[in-house]
């Protein structure tokens, strides 16, 4: 943990680049290799590959570990995550956590569905995914403004059991779907409607 704090501090003051002869690639160098898919500094402009910018270190480390251990349904990340050590994953996480949260504002969405989704979010999701799911401090990922197809895929995977979810989320998803059978689609449109 101490290691992480040191790295964060260095990154925050912009000193990491000037550290000489590191035995490992820098956090920056590791983060830069992700940009071709996830956008510069993790700010994705695509609608299927999610942004990493501003995600909490804890969330990022957990996600990479799950991909690496085949504990999460993976498109390509399982193959990528296996290329990194614990230290490198931690290092990458500090890099992305230090970036400003990114909102992809050029996505297509259905306005009526987005309004329904917003109400659903407030009622069933907001207590864990605060500020529309844009607060990294909740350690629960980024929802509003994230890649809209990624949100759709992720909700579908949670729903059909391809990916396991916390008990409380399971309960809330059931409630939301009971209230509105199109809840997942409406939520997705809400998350894609970020301005």
């Amino acid at each position: 943990m101490r290691n992480t704090i040191t790295k964060s501090a260095l990154l925050a003051t912009g000193l990491l680049l000037s550290v000489q002869s590191l035995a490992e690639p820098t956090a920056e160098a590791l983060g830069y290799t992700c940009a071709g898919c996830h956008g510069t500094n993790g700010a994705s402009t695509g609608n299927a590959i999610p942004s990493l910018a501003g995600l909490s270190e804890g969330y990022l480390i957990n996600a990479m570990n799950e991909y690496r251990d085949d504990g999460r349904l993976s498109q390509i990340m399982g193959r990528i995550a296996k290329g990194y050590t614990d230290d490198q994953i931690e290092s990458m996480a500090t890099f992305f956590a230090a970036q400003p949260v990114h909102s992809n504002i050029n996505q297509q969405f259905d306005d009526a569905k987005a309004r329904k989704g917003e109400k659903l979010h407030k009622k069933y999701c907001e207590s864990c995914h605060t500020a529309g799911g844009t607060d990294p401090e909740d350690d629960a990922g980024l929802l509003s403004g994230n890649a809209v197809l990624f949100m759709k895929y992720t909700l579908a995977d949670f729903h059909d059991g391809s990916r396991s979810m916390p008990k409380r989320m399971n309960k809330m998803m059931k409630k939301a779907l009971k209230k509105d059978s199109n809840a997942l689609d409406n939520l997705t449109n809400y998350y894609g409607s970020a301005k």
Partner: peptide, 29 residues
């Protein structure tokens, strides 16, 4: 241990997603 190909066994859901991941790849790179 890293890397490799999309699994050879055809999976409708994953192959469709892979197409859209490819389009996002294009946008981002």
């Amino acid at each position: 241990g890293s890397g490799g190909l999309t699994p050879g066994k055809f999976d409708t859901k994953l192959r469709e997603r892979e197409q859209y991941y490819g389009y996002s790849w294009f946008d981002n790179i």
